[in-house]
């Protein structure tokens, strides 16, 4: 058989297949299921309301709050300086620069921590870093920061300090005057922002 015909018999079916199948536009997962499970088990993605409150009050420029609830819910109530990326929209390329970056510390929140955690799982599986989840979500935030429960007189000093901080923070965020100095007693354990390694730009051409 002529080599040209052999080539035709090989290339035409391959060409037909490649013309018929849709292009693969999915992004490859960077983390395996096992790796992700390890992270989920350790729970390092959670960041407590106290930590977030401290950063909000000190106007920490590295903090970026991201509301993953729907736009309607976002309109009704949101934390200060928050951007709204509804969970259903998380893979929209428009938002990629926000959730795939190495400058800011992103904190996802929703009413509970469920939706925020789902957003985190998706971004984490894509290998994105610096994304965290507000522990307990807005419900827990309101309970702890906005309406903190007064500890009893016999509580240890840390409890009282914590209460004072929360009360101050709640007032600060609620717009009232702050009498206490919240920054001082705030827990300062802040997740470290890991610099994302810049993908090497491939060079080419002659």
């Amino acid at each position: 058989m002529k080599p040209r015909l052999i080539l035709a018999y090989v290339l035409i079916p391959l060409g037909l297949i490649i013309a018929a199948v849709p292009e693969n536009t999915t992004k490859p997962y960077k983390l395996t299921a096992d790796e992700l499970l390890e992270e989920v088990k350790s729970g390092t993605q959670f960041i407590s309301p106290d930590e977030v409150a401290a950063m909000v009050i000190s106007k920490d420029p590295s903090l970026q709050l991201i509301d993953v609830r729907s736009a309607a819910e976002f309109e009704k109530f949101s934390l200060p300086n928050t951007i709204n990326i509804p969970l259903v929209d998380i893979l929209n390329p428009e938002w990629e620069d926000y959730i795939h970056q190495d400058v800011k510390l992103n904190v996802f929140y929703s009413n509970s921590s469920n939706n925020a955690n789902q957003a985190w799982m998706i971004t984490r599986q894509l290998g994105y870093e610096n994304n965290y989840v507000l522990q307990g979500g807005l419900n827990f935030w309101v309970k702890t920061i906005m309406n903190p429960k007064e500890p009893s007189e016999l509580s240890p000093n840390e409890e009282i300090a914590k209460y004072n901080f929360r009360k101050g923070a709640g007032m600060a965020l609620g717009g009232a005057d702050v009498s206490t100095q919240p920054g001082a007693s705030a827990p300062v354990k802040k997740p470290v922002i890991t610099k994302r390694k810049k993908k090497k730009k491939v060079q080419g051409g002659c």
């Binding site: 080599p3 040209r4 080539l7 491939v202 060079q203 080419g204 002659c206």
Partner: peptide, 29 residues
């Protein structure tokens, strides 16, 4: 070599270059 076989082999070298380095072949550079 038969030119069609040669073309297929050259194409495979090209694909390997893409897979390894994300770029194709070149010379004048």
């Amino acid at each position: 070599m038969n030119p069609y076989l040669g073309g297929v082999l050259l194409g495979l070298v090209l694909v390997i270059a893409f897979w390894v380095s994300g770029r194709g072949l070149g010379s004048s550079g």
